[in-house]
């Protein structure tokens, strides 16, 4: 069994690692497995408690029955690149190729990695939502308007979140903007499927991965986390519904 100092350092690292993984949108199953794999490698006895807004790692001290408790908060986000990098790191630790110090430095490096440039992501979101529109049998005009409304709504949401506006309000405003822009098909009488354009205009805001994560956590027995993520997803869906509804009301009411 590792000494107290090593156990404390390893426990602190594992808490940071678990919160980092959960912040990137990993499931509780993957977080547990990766963390316990590394704990085995460090030679420490740990227990992981995953709660909706924070996680706790409990490490047994070297002698006696005392335990050290490390708690880290995490926020919800999706970053599969970080999940991949952290999963690889857990295997390197498990295979004895990284010490705690090296793993700590690598974790800081992984967390500091930047994402794709925003304009590329906005363009990709536009293409994806336009493809969605086509999957619902929209024509070329509907796809063009959906592309435009998605780019605009995505960029607006990003700007508002950077300005620390509440995410829910940002989703409502983005949904409203997307609905009004996609209604251009109706306004200018372009294309044969304007209703598909309006219906598909907000689909990029649907929180698909939180829904999947919620059900996945439910299947693996983490009911509290599953319920929390599910409620968050329902909240976001309600916000986009409200945004779409408000957008249509503004255009139709007068």
């Amino acid at each position: 069994m590792a000494g107290v100092d090593n156990a404390e350092r390893a426990g602190r690292f594992l808490a940071l690692y678990s919160s980092g993984l959960l912040s990137s949108g990993a499931t509780t199953l993957r977080t547990e497995r990766n963390m316990l794999r590394m704990a085995d490698s460090f030679g420490i006895d740990v227990q992981l408690t995953i709660l909706p807004m924070h996680c706790e790692v409990s490490v047994r001290k070297d002698k006696g029955n005392g335990r050290l408790l490390f708690s880290e908060q995490y926020s919800r986000g999706i970053n599969f690149n970080a999940i991949t990098a952290m999963s690889r790191m857990s295997w390197k630790v498990a295979d004895g190729r990284l010490t705690v110090e090296q793993a700590e430095r690598l974790l800081s490096f992984v967390k500091a990695q930047s994402r794709y440039p925003d304009w590329i992501v906005a363009f990709a979101a536009g293409v994806a939502n336009a493809s969605f529109c086509r999957l619902f049998c929209g024509d070329l005009w509907a796809m063009a308007f959906v592309f435009l409304c998605t780019v605009m709504g995505f960029w607006l949401k990003r700007c508002l979140i950077h300005r620390s506006v509440d995410v829910r309000i940002a989703v409502i405003l983005a949904g409203m903007v997307s609905a009004i822009t996609a209604s251009g098909c109706y306004i200018f009488s372009l294309g044969a499927t304007p209703d598909v354009a309006v219906a598909a205009s907000v689909l990029y805001l649907v929180p698909g991965i939180p829904f999947i994560n919620a059900f996945s956590n439910f299947m693996h027995g983490h009911y509290v986390c599953a319920a929390a993520i599910f409620m968050h997803a329902i909240e976001t869906t309600a916000c986009l519904g409200i945004g779409l509804f408000c957008g249509v009301m503004i255009l139709n009411n007068l």
Binding site: M152, W155, L156, C159, L160, H162, R163, V177, I180, T181, S183, G184, Y186, I187, F188, I250, L251, L254
Partner: peptide
């Protein structure tokens, strides 16, 4: 037309927010 006005105002305001930010 009112709807055209709302449509154009929406686009202009989003562009202004994006550029301003």
């Amino acid at each position: 037309d009112y709807q055209v006005l709302i449509f154009l105002l929406t686009i202009v305001s989003v562009v202004l927010v994006a550029v301003g930010s």
